[in-house]
Design a protein around this nucleic acid. Sequence first.
DNA 1: ACAAATTATGATACCGGTGTCATAAACCTA
DNA 2: TAGGTTTATGACACCGGTATCATAATTTGT
Lengths: 347, 347
Amino acid sequence: MSEDAIEEFIQRRKKATINDVARLARVSKKTVSRVINASPSVRAETRDSVNAIIARIGFRPDPQARGLAFRRSFLIGLIYDNPNAQYVVNMQMGALDALRGSGSELVVHPCDLRSERFIEDIRDFIELQRLAGVIILPPISEDKRLLALLEELEVAYVRVSALQPTTTKGGYAILSKERIGCRAAGEHLAQLGHKSIGFIAGPEGYTSATERRAGFREGLQAHGLDIDWELEAQGAYTFESGHAAALKILNRPNRPTALFASNDEMAIGAYKAAFELGLRIPADLSICGYDDSPMALRVSPPLTTVNLPSRDMAKAAATTLLTDEGDRKAEIIFESGLVVRESTAKA
Amino acid sequence: MSEDAIEEFIQRRKKATINDVARLARVSKKTVSRVINASPSVRAETRDSVNAIIARIGFRPDPQARGLAFRRSFLIGLIYDNPNAQYVVNMQMGALDALRGSGSELVVHPCDLRSERFIEDIRDFIELQRLAGVIILPPISEDKRLLALLEELEVAYVRVSALQPTTTKGGYAILSKERIGCRAAGEHLAQLGHKSIGFIAGPEGYTSATERRAGFREGLQAHGLDIDWELEAQGAYTFESGHAAALKILNRPNRPTALFASNDEMAIGAYKAAFELGLRIPADLSICGYDDSPMALRVSPPLTTVNLPSRDMAKAAATTLLTDEGDRKAEIIFESGLVVRESTAKA
DNA sequence: ACAAATTATGATACCGGTGTCATAAACCTA
DNA sequence: TAGGTTTATGACACCGGTATCATAATTTGT
């Protein structure tokens, strides 16, 4: 029997290859390949004996060799142009939650939406690495050129984005009901008795900005209010822009008693503005943000905000890519809801 | 001439392989391989004509095939167990700064220092992916088991860590003079006239925690002061731990007028404690942190802190891995200096 | 100018897997 | 039980590169 040969091999402590398995199992390497790939046309007996050898000598197929033969790697690309570190890390963690143990690895690829080489850079990345799949995050998950590229390259991709009532482009999508969450925020402020409410919008052209504004507005309208154009300013989802926008709004003659910022970064910018103007939160000014980022818990008082299950969304995105093409869900929708803390109070 | 053949090939718009180049350049694929790898024994004339073809048909060697033949991939692993999203993203960005255009990609690999499979998980990752190199971040860049593993696997690795006067283990290291930065922080508070100064330490066993404490103490001692054990508490580099530690210290009968936290997260935790106790910053309490994280600029008042050039350090780490083994610097040392903002003032 | 030394190039095997297709083995059916 | 199907397996080429080593081309020495 080949027991001796097996023992001897194990003693050598060398990385096992498919040839080793084939030799020790007394089958051809092709049969081993079939076992690895769960081909149905392998006799149960053969399969078991091959698997036994695989387990004993600790064989694990080489992703590079496999990738070369398959003409695609076992790498998932995470492509984004997003300055929010916490968000990015959350997405990475979520994707890795799904990838762990799958044999696939996550390759991160930040990019620059405004660069000339934006598309070409991503094309090179995907083509050269022969990526198994791609996850794209907002705001580039809305970019037409990028979506066209992904279709052209015929690479599996999943968009992470805000659910919007109108458009539904092809591909797979992980969406969140940002509108609903913001609607709750609007209702919350209205219910607290605020009549004069400021609004800091996100950057133009961002789906999330549009959806959050629409949702917030719906919330106000449900209570007979509306966004006051005099108390509205646009930001860029950054701290500085939120600070500037808040200053602008709070310096109006008709200073509002509450303020909604389209993300936490800008809400924290509004904190700074309030601090500078000597306004106490929430006594003089209620502030509400969006994202439920860790910062929301770190500022004083803790920020009322709308949560976004980003990690879970990323996990769902990666899971979709690992799923057989036939079984993939075209879209998976996540909730988004209000988290009331101490930065909002009665008017 | 082969002009026609070249044109025809370009028309086909198919991904070029080394065989295409060889055929069109009328040389063997091995010669093309030599050109790709900058082998010296290629006639200049041959090299140029091959390069011309490569450029014209846009040939780029397949990393998988190359990796298979080389027995190592073109992937750099970034391995860490660090909860600080901003820090992690900074390191990723820095590493990518160096990797951009090099043909190597960054694979992120968070891990769990406390897991049973901590080492085995990393071993699998490195072995299976045949990583070209590995960057490890604090605190696992100090882990003996991990360092032993990396030596065993004979993989190129770079440690990112705090410079410490005593130990210098093997391998390559990117270090920062955290001690010096904290010394400056200590001097700063002393010079402001504070006599009673609280200290929030980092977690036990962390090199950075030890170094920061030592540096801060040196700074105080330079002005005839010292860390007061009654006003010292240990944290875990987290917001919550900083909050708890600050509360403990600030509730002492001999409440200090200044407080140094060993990182910004904990300093922000101290902000919360001050807020809860009705202490104004810096009028009633000066606070100083470490990291110069984005949060330091976002809180009100902006936090005085010590900066750490993390992105540059990561870039240096990745650059080291891309450098030929002979030309690598054993260690590269970065400065760390005080950034005075508005959270510290005269006693 | 010619043999010897050096340099440039190519033929072939190989890295570790998968695809194709032919063939061997097992299973039916009558 | 023979003959036809179906199923399981293997031989061999191939994915796109690199390593080895033999040979062709060039340079050097005298």
